[in-house]
């Protein structure tokens, strides 16, 4: 070992250095904010720290968190996906329509996921191969896929008779915890592991960090981009199917506005619109923070009309803090 290359160890660092390093990790900052918020809320409102309330709080953000995982991948690559809300609506509606047409729910789910995959494939191909700007392409697909959902339902929600085995996913409990939360945890654990260890995920980070360098280093930029939008669409499709299971109704507007909520959650969790940054854990924590803030407003008897205002402020606050701390470092 040459004198210039030290091994990767923390020894020799002072305590303040470690503290500063930890403060630089966005996920920990958000986690700290969440914990502080929870402590305050438990004092202000005795109803907060009850299993029921916590379950409700998390349940309200399960779909957002699942969609945010996909959005994280897109954001890390330097892109984003405005069509996820429409895909989410479409997947639920497609599955519901097939069931109403006499099909068993399980093959109907497979078909809904195939439809989501197809949507992602189209989006990804146009962005990755034809080189259409991600904003334009996903905005266009938002309209197209939403249109499919409207056409299938003729605009009205479909009441779908569903077997208990399926509604268990959206309405059941395992050991006192809603099945949906278990599903979310599985998605998070797998996605987080893959984002940190999978070669293909590494390529997403390369792409978002410097697309020119990625190209010259031999990474197939177009192919990676295509897969990114397939992943966002599949996760949105999953969220749509779970929504159907939760409410037993296929609504053509089930995912409306989800794309911006998911982007907000990811950004609060440390992702950056310029790419190269972001993590699955950050997306989860960003979603949870949004959920807890919503819940706090309810518990504090603040009118629901304040909700969007407060969430908007949280987003701006999180990003401003980040910009200011980064500026200090430079």
């Amino acid at each position: 070992m040459s004198a210039n290359v030290h091994t990767d160890k923390i020894s020799g660092w002072s305590g303040t250095q470690i503290l500063r390093k930890l403060a630089g990790i966005r996920e920990l900052t958000i986690l700290a904010v969440i914990i502080v918020l929870m402590i305050i809320l438990s004092f202000v409102s005795p109803a907060f720290l009850t299993t029921d309330n916590l379950n409700t709080t998390v349940l309200s953000v399960v779909m957002m968190a699942i969609v945010s995982v996909g959005m994280t991948v897109a954001l890390v690559s330097g892109g984003f996906d405005l069509s996820v809300g429409s895909v989410m609506s479409m997947a639920g509606v497609v599955a519901g329509a097939f069931v109403l047409g006499g099909m068993n729910i399980w093959p109907a789910i497979i078909l809904a996921l195939i439809a989501s995959f197809g949507s992602g494939l189209v989006t990804g191909t146009f962005i990755g191969r034809v080189k259409i700007n991600a904003f334009i392409m996903t905005l266009g697909m938002q309209g197209v896929i939403q249109g499919v959902a409207y056409v299938v339902t003729q605009g009205a929600p479909l009441s779908v008779p569903l077997p208990n085995a399926f509604t268990f996913l959206g309405q059941g409990y395992i050991w006192g915890i809603p099945t949906l939360i278990w599903i979310l945890m599985i998605v998070i654990v797998i996605a987080d592991y893959l984002m940190r260890h999978a070669v293909v995920a590494k390529k997403v980070y390369y792409l978002g960090s410097n697309q020119n360098a990625a190209f010259l280093s031999g990474i197939r930029v177009g192919k990676v981009q295509t897969w990114i939008y397939i992943v966002t669409a599949l996760l949105a499709g999953l969220a749509g199917i779970l929504t159907l299971s939760r409410f037993s109704v296929a609504t053509p507007t089930a995912g409306q506005g989800m794309e911006l909520q998911a982007i907000a959650a990811c950004i609060i969790g440390g992702a950056s619109l310029s790419g190269g940054e972001g993590s699955v854990l950050g997306a989860l924590l960003g979603s949870l923070l949004v959920g807890i803030v919503d819940d706090a407003l309810v518990l504090l008897n603040v009118s629901v009309y304040w909700q969007s205002l407060v969430i908007g402020l949280v987003l701006i606050g999180a990003v401003t803090t980040d910009v200011l701390t980064h500026r200090q470092k430079a």
């Binding site: 070669v199 590494k202 980070y205 960090s209 410097n210 020119n212 990625a214 190269g276 940054e277």
Partner: peptide, 25 residues
């Protein structure tokens, strides 16, 4: 490339990431 920062390196990534990028397999 001649253009180290614009198309050569992944500046916000680690040395390790920059070295292994060409030979991930």
């Amino acid at each position: 490339t001649e253009n180290r920062k614009i198309e050569g390196l992944f500046l916000k990534m680690s040395i390790l990431d920059n070295v292994v990028v060409t030979d991930l397999d």
